[in-house]
Every structure is written in C-alpha cells, then in structure tokens.
Write a protein that binds this DNA or RNA. Sequence first.
DNA 1: TAGATTGTTAATCGATTAACAATC
DNA 2: TAGATTGTTAATCGATTAACAATC
Lengths: 210, 210
Amino acid sequence: MPPTKTLERLIMYRIVLEQNAAQGVTHLFSKDLADQTGSNPAQVRRDLMVVGYSGNPQKGYAVIDLIEKIRHMLEPAEGIPMTLIGIGNLGRAIVGHFNRLKPKFNLVATFDTDENKIGRVIAGCQCYHVNEIPKVLAPYIIQLGIITVPESYAQKAADQLIAAGVRGIANFAPTPIRVPAGVYLENMQLTLTFEKVAYFARSKISGGTV
Amino acid sequence: MPPTKTLERLIMYRIVLEQNAAQGVTHLFSKDLADQTGSNPAQVRRDLMVVGYSGNPQKGYAVIDLIEKIRHMLEPAEGIPMTLIGIGNLGRAIVGHFNRLKPKFNLVATFDTDENKIGRVIAGCQCYHVNEIPKVLAPYIIQLGIITVPESYAQKAADQLIAAGVRGIANFAPTPIRVPAGVYLENMQLTLTFEKVAYFARSKISGGTV
DNA sequence: TAGATTGTTAATCGATTAACAATC
DNA sequence: TAGATTGTTAATCGATTAACAATC
C-alpha cells in the first residue's frame, strides 16, 4: 500500500494526464508532469516507482499508458458503490461531480430528512429518508459515504452510515466526527482551508502549492 | 511562522474548542482535545507550544482562554477581504458557509458569467460579471479568492484574480491550476478526496483519521 | 554517438512520537 | 503530599530531495 501522500499525487497526475490526453499530447517528461501538478521531477519519478511503469529517457512517459497503469492501480474494480447524506447546495454540487465520474463510482442513493426532497430524483439520483438507510444500503458494501449535513447531525449521520456497513467516509460538515477503527475517515473542513489560505496569503512571501 | 500541518491542527482545535465552549465545557486535557480531533495528546501539547498558552496539570486547558489565544494568533485583523468566482451549487454552498463566519471574513463580491445571476444578490452577496473584477476589487487587498468555476475556466479565473491583486487562492475546479510565486495556492480537488477514501476504505484494515 | 532523462539509492529534511523533569 | 498532566527536549520515523549510473 503506497503512502497517502504518494497516492494523492498519483491521483493528481492522472487528472492532468487525462487533460493532456484530451489535447492530443502523447508523451510527457517528469518535469512537465511536475510543473502541471505543483510537484518536482524527482518527486514525480519517485512516485511513479510504485505504479510499475517505465518511461523512456528520450520520449518521457507515454500519456495513455501511464494513465492506464495508474488507473489500474487505483481501481481494481469499476462501479465503486457510494452514497451521500444531505442534499443541500453542497450535496447537490458533489452529486453533480459524480455524474461526470461514472462509471467509476456508482451513486446508489442519497438521503435527507426534508420531506420535500424525499422520494424525488435529485441530480439524477433517488433521495430517501435517512430512516431507510439500513434497508436501501443493505445490498451494497459502500466504499464511500459522503456527509453534507448540518453540524448538529454530522456524527449521527456517520453512525448511521457505519451501522449500514459503510467502509469509508468523507465528512464535509463543519465539525470533525469520530469513527471506529476499520472505517477510513477524511474530515474535510472547508473552513480550515479558507482560514489556512487567508493566513498564509497574509504571512508568506513566496507561494506554496497543492 | 508555524508549519502548515501545525496550523491546520490549531484551526481544528479551535473549531472543537468552540463547540465545547458552546456546551459549557470550561476545561479540557490534551487527551480530550486529541480524541475530538483525531490527534494524540503529545501532538496537541507540541502544537500548543506555538500559541504561547500554558495549561494546568490539574485542570488542563481553559477552553475560552485557549480559543482566544489561537484566534489571536490566526487573525491579527477581522474582516479579511475575500471573493468568489462561479456561483453554481458549490459556490452557493460556500457563500452560505461564510455567512456563518462573519465578521471574520468579509465577502466583498461574487462573480459569474451567467447573465441571469449578474446584478442579483445571491446568498447575501452582490454578483458581478467577471469583466468587472478589476473595478470591483480595486479598493481591496483580497486575501482569499475562491474559484468554483468549470474546468475550462479555472486558470483564466485565477489569472483574473491575481491580476486584481488577490494574495491567496482556493481552487475547487476539477483541475489543478498554476500561480506565480507570491500567491498562496490551495488546489482542492474534491475528486481526489473521494478516490482516496474509496481506495483506503477498500485496502486498509484499520482506520485513518483527519 | 552525445546528452538529456530515467529509475533508484543515499542523504537530507521535517514532522511525529516518546520520554521525563517540572508543575499544580 | 501523591499523582496525573503539563511543556519541552531528544529520538524516531517518514517523506522529500539530491545524486548518479543506466538508458535510449
């Protein structure tokens, strides 16, 4: 299993590799990839060691082949089952994103407590009441549960997802939550990012990246 | 200037300290703070060294005082000027967040290219056409510019903000962008988070945090 | 071939954790 | 006082960067 940081960068490389492929670029050097991702050539080469793909000192890396290698490493399977709780603006924005990520992810259902939303298809996915989580999710082993609910409901939402067997959680509520060992958690406090940027924008002389 | 990681955790501590204060908790030990933020007591104590606040071996840390110390360290000033480009679902969700963060941040304007949005007040803030960026932002030194536009417009949006003197950028478009030295950049690829969680949820036996 | 770039190892750097005397 | 917790230094750990022989 690669280090988290390496994995993050590999995902980033793949994103920009796909953009390059879309523009008809066939080969890139480690320097190019570094420039486009805010990394550096040594880092890129070191990261690529874990995917088991070799470049060519004269041409660099074949874009298509490298995408395929990274993809293969990241996604043994397609149609990763996922779900989302809380269909506010943020929830809708994220669901929208996932419509572009098909068929990689399979958004099996969304949940909310607002009667106006329940039973409707929102952003292409059926919305259920949170009470139906156990029933609706029973057929799946959900790899990714996204929490976009208000602060007061965040921990409860996580507990419900975990009870339904969800293995990984990305929490966007404005408070960190806790999960038992065995569940992978990413607490995404958007506020934290904003405060950090404001802080370093004020303090730093030269810019950081990623 | 504290290390980035330390700063991130300090912001997180403050978030949970504020929640504890709201619940009437007056004192916390490093262990409590660690549990609630997915950290560990040694880390907490080490981080708190930089804020210059001393706890008490018998009572722990006085919640209110510690909040004040961290706040003081993070925000020399109030009303940090900020802006946002791209009033889609994600943009609206973020603007909504900022309404809770007043008076700390001061969202001076939002921008879009959609004629249906321009001239309107959306989520409490006036929306202008992107062509007006230079004029509207001229009176401010913007510390935080948030980009929530489609992929194809992300780099352009950044360039426009930077030309208007924006010092820090949080980019939520689905592609990393580049900025010159002197501008602090955070590329927030939500996709990256989702793929990472899905990956480790599948691979890891015991859970990670933060 | 000559030379820039690769893959990989070694060196450096920074961040986390452990340890412990000082403290209340 | 006794004992748990603090602040801080030292040790460990992991991640980044530098270096360089191998390669095309």
